[in-house]
């Protein structure tokens, strides 16, 4: 059998069978659509807005706003923690580093698993938005949903933009989670930075230094009116991602103690 990076990814992937990762993904991806169904059921104002506007556009916007701002970064923090803690909890890091695999293979194959789970989250979230729309039609009679075509293209574009926005956070959290045995450290740092960025977000004009706000910014910003373009935001997100990921790898590579 010839060893390849793909085999490394498969090795990593197999470790998360029977774990709570998939349940966690489904739970967090479904939270915002469930909340929006409840809000729409109890709020006549929201129901009215849904009936008078472009229902799909409005419904996607209110779902994505909460997800891009809070739910997705929180999911990424918890996901990275769970992935690294699977190794820590089972005393498995030392065995992993005693395998005939390069450090790059170990580091990046695990990171690919994180990315696959994030993409799975996006798929679930979009699916739950559609299910929520069906439920609103059935329960509350929001008939506009089925008078207009489902905006697949808009859903895809928002998903891609928010995904690019979350890349830097996923790399930073991955680095922290792999680096610290105590799960409270990456969790604490991640949540503090997320909340700190959200609190400061309204007061600070320049968001280029707040990676935890990139997903929200990539989703919500009216790029025609902003003093920096969408292109610049893409670039900043991708550069932050590459720098964070490489810093994490180099930190691991030069660590004196592995496992």
């Amino acid at each position: 059998m010839k060893y390849s990076f793909l085999l490394g990814i498969k090795t990593e992937w197999l470790k998360y069978r029977h774990t709570s990762l998939f349940g966690l993904t489904l739970l967090i991806a479904s939270l915002t659509p469930i909340m929006k169904i409840i809000s729409c059921m109890v709020s006549d104002e929201l129901y009215g807005m849904m009936m008078h506007r472009d229902s799909w556009h409005f419904f996607l916007m209110i779902n994505w706003k909460d997800t891009a701002a809070v739910m997705l970064p929180m999911y990424v923090i918890l996901l990275n923690n769970s992935i690294a803690q699977t190794e820590y909890r089972n005393n498995a890091w030392k065995q992993l580093y005693a395998l005939p695999r390069s450090y790059a293979d170990i580091f990046f194959s695990k990171f690919i698993v994180v990315q696959v789970m994030i993409i799975f989250y996006f798929l679930c979230f979009n699916l739950f938005c559609l299910i929520a729309a069906v439920l609103l039609f059935l329960l509350k009679g929001v008939h506009n949903f089925f008078q207009l075509p489902i905006p697949w293209y808009q859903m895809l574009i928002i998903s891609i933009r928010v995904y690019i926005g979350i890349l830097a956070v996923s790399a930073i959290q991955y680095w922290l989670s792999v680096r610290f045995r105590n799960f409270m450290i990456p969790l604490g740092i991640g949540l503090s930075l997320l909340i700190g960025c959200l609190l400061l977000g309204g007061w600070v004009k320049n968001h280029l230094y707040s990676p935890y706000l990139f997903p929200l910014f990539m989703f919500s910003m009216d790029h025609s009116n902003e003093h920096y373009s969408l292109g610049l935001m893409y670039m900043v997100s991708l550069v932050s991602f590459v720098l964070s990921l490489l810093s994490g790898f180099l930190n691991l590579y030069f660590r004196k103690e592995k496992g």
């Binding site: 060893y3 197999l14 005393n91 030392k94 005693a98 005939p100």
Partner: peptide, 28 residues
């Protein structure tokens, strides 16, 4: 190698644990 405590994924059974290492060691 076996260093200190066993490195075993407790949520998996013995065959699933061995499958992970089998792929890494490239054996049949």
């Amino acid at each position: 190698s076996l260093i200190e405590q066993p490195s075993i994924y407790l949520h998996l059974n013995a065959r699933e644990n061995l499958e992970i290492y089998r792929l890494a060691y490239k054996c049949g």
